[in-house]
Nucleic acid binder design. Sequence first.
DNA 1: CACCTAATAT
DNA 2: TATATTAGGT
Length: 297
Amino acid sequence: MAEEVRINTHHVTAGDDDGRATEWEAGLPNADDLPPLSQFLISPELASAFNITPEPHRSMTDVTRASHKTLSTLIKHPKHHMLEKLNDFMSSSDERGEEMVVEGDHTDETVDLILEGSDSRKLRRVCSGGGGGGGGGGEEADSGLRDRGSKRIRLVWTPQLHKRFVEVVRHLGVKNAVPKTIMQLMNVEGLTRENVASHLQKYRIYLKRMSGLSILTPVPDPVPMAYAPQMVRMPYAPPGMVPNSAAGGAGGGVRGYCHGFGYHSHPYNMMMQPKDWSGNGFGSVSSYQKRMTANDK
DNA sequence: CACCTAATAT
DNA sequence: TATATTAGGT
């Protein structure tokens, strides 16, 4: 309780003293009703159980600074001119910041477009009930989202975006999930078929991995050998392949092994999603493996 | 043409 | 490392 919280009365100096938007404060709880900034909202046990790292302690100064920043941003780009900023950065980002993030928000309705340089705008996309289009048909137009030189911008698959991807893939079923359809169903502006294809390729590789792996307990702790039958199946042991040191080269050793998807990006697997979307049951993980060999389209 | 996989480029 | 692009095939 070291810090005194006085949000109500604190003023913002962006511009002048009355840059403060008092209407924003209407209905907000009084400072006395709020817990002090220094106090965590969840218990340490809970935090550790869910692998949450507590934010560093914030002082009133930090709050003030953040507040200033927000306000000055809003003053600079008032109203609905936010979208125009998108074009701004697209044309101003030559050669350098050519990374873009498309990240879905909590709802299915909006996605955030973020640039590598931490620029971020909101675009609106509606998953409206209309289009559906099981058969295909070409609706939804264009928007490849390019750099000034008409070069494509690198897409970053944020967890939100990936989640949308996975939902669509599951909804379609793995067999019918092809880039074009996925792209259409995801309904994210700027997303291209190539984006999806590339991601899908990686996703399939990931699934293959998972299907080879034993899904049941990757042996959490060293249990006595005698009692540990064969819980860990070898993923893929193509005849005549030595586990490690094959290509060697890049990256090296153990870590190059679990590249990309399952492990790296988040402690929680990016590729994994809760087993449910609609009634589309495909529980069995190793069902599609035969597809490659034969022909079913 | 859309799709697939593998390899390679950025 | 993650994503894009290309090659070569169905």
